[in-house]
Amino acid sequence: MKAFTTLTALVAPLDRANIDTDAIIPKQFLKSIRRAGFGPYLFDEWRYLDRGEPEMDCTNRPLNKDFVLNQAQYQGAQILLTRENFGCGSSREHAPWALEDYGFRAIIAPSFADIFFNNCFKNGILPIVLPAETVDLLFQEVVDGYQLTIDLQAQTITTPSGQSIVFSVDENRRFRLMNGLDDIALSLQHADKIKTYEAERAKRAPWLFKDA
């Protein structure tokens, strides 16, 4: 996983509430058995005018010119600004995979759906929760070439005018993301504790331990 420390990048505003994971990456693309290559299909039904299919070459597909990510001034954006309950719906990690593959490293919203929020941290994406009024202000400020600087160590966002916005991330998640750490390796450091737990629980609930 890519580590996340600081990021200065272009912001793309996606002004909709309750954006679900079916919109982020439609189900036909979930048939892939790989982890990479979802970026061209991110927001497929909004981004293109035709119907997307797995493994399709997207270079000549008709674009929906009204969709924000197709507009010239937002090309290369790495920060997505959006509304409440972003990522609701399914648990598909293909959603953060698609966002990451497209190039997004941070998402700012008033709230996120829990499973999606969690999945972001496993993929080097920083989801930032800000008060709805602050998100509103950012939406008003976004103009051509609008960039934000995100500092995960300091847990601050700096706007072009120099204003500093504070956010907070759970300490454990922040540490793992800043160092790009392998969660499984960290958990396996507690292997002895897991075994002790199993031995103790097997006494209380033996029926859960009568398998091979």
Partner: peptide, 29 residues
Amino acid sequence: SHTSTHGASAALAFGIGTSEVEHALATQC
């Protein structure tokens, strides 16, 4: 995500992403 279904049996059940599927396979935690 519809793993929440199993909560009907008073089990703590929830949906996870693929990284956590791997994590649960490897550590049972």
